[in-house]
Design a protein around this nucleic acid. Sequence first.
DNA 1: TCCAATCGTTCGGCTTGACGAACGGCAAAC
DNA 2: GTTTGCCGTTCGTCAAGCCGAACGATTGGA
Lengths: 184, 184
Amino acid sequence: MSNTAPLDVIAASLRRERDRAGLSLSELAKRAGIAKSTLSQLESGSGNPSVETLWSLGVALGVPFSRLVDPPVPRVHLIRAGEGPVVHSERAHYAASLLASCPPGARRDIYWLALEPGAARESEPHMPGTVEHIIVCTGRVRAGLMDSPVDLGPGDYLLYPGDLPHICLALEAGSTATLVMEHI
Amino acid sequence: MSNTAPLDVIAASLRRERDRAGLSLSELAKRAGIAKSTLSQLESGSGNPSVETLWSLGVALGVPFSRLVDPPVPRVHLIRAGEGPVVHSERAHYAASLLASCPPGARRDIYWLALEPGAARESEPHMPGTVEHIIVCTGRVRAGLMDSPVDLGPGDYLLYPGDLPHICLALEAGSTATLVMEHI
DNA sequence: TCCAATCGTTCGGCTTGACGAACGGCAAAC
DNA sequence: GTTTGCCGTTCGTCAAGCCGAACGATTGGA
């Protein structure tokens, strides 16, 4: 959640995306069906555009709306196996390592899971709209909705709603998996 | 990229998020510092809010701006190892399997990679702003920026810009990895 | 050199979003 | 039954966004 002034972010985004598209201010304004004076003011940071105005600009630029209101990105980051911030469960045999949290607008957190047979990793549902992707790396894992779990082997991929009761447990010792948690 | 009218989407999102937060219309308007008449009109679908108005509502609701302008999501999906749509390279020894493409607003595609020693997987950069996350599953993989690659083992995680020249090659036979490609 | 075209900015007008106040509806307290 | 409080909606006023036109600056061609 960026705390910088949205108007400045939008101004910068508009300029950036327009450059990338190789369009002139006049040309973009014409394609978006807005007055070029309006666009000029927006890019200069003055003005507080309506949603419809921003939307038509997004369409004309061929970019999703959200790219205009969320900022840039990082560089290179390496996390060696076992080095990430690890969350140990007190009641289940697993360790979850957060590899990459959601940048603004990305909405998919990436975890590395190391699971041991025993109890289920999870039973309580998350926030409404959450979706989980799991890709098994080694061993065998039982995952999915509580009432209809699926057994997965190395390379298997499973998608399921995270806002319903669900489980994730190892069937073999030393099971590992990548988990991508997606928020609405 | 949703093509439904943004105003209707926003109206629905506002109502949904407000319900989720358990706030009354009056209470939310007060917290966001806007007139409740304005909020009432927005939720009814009439009105074309300015960015600042929407922004303060997002802050008051504790949700990122983009959640107010992008729609809902899917259910359960299973891809057995080797069953996904696979992209074979003609010049490198690897197979990439697309597990989950970007839903609107998610911006992170998920791939399963099976790599064999030989040539590099990639050298040409992608779209500006692309970021790649790789988590090695088995074997050993050399990945990262062309001029400063990193050797990775099982469980290792690496983040690097995808819009610069980069490589991804196996150092051992039977190397596998999860790749998350993130678009701006 | 002059002209034509396009660039991006600035200036009045008209339209529209945001505001505050008043409204009717509903529930709990007196 | 009446009062009090909060709910969400509607109405009139005011400010601000959006527009079209005119502007100076720059470039390329006749």
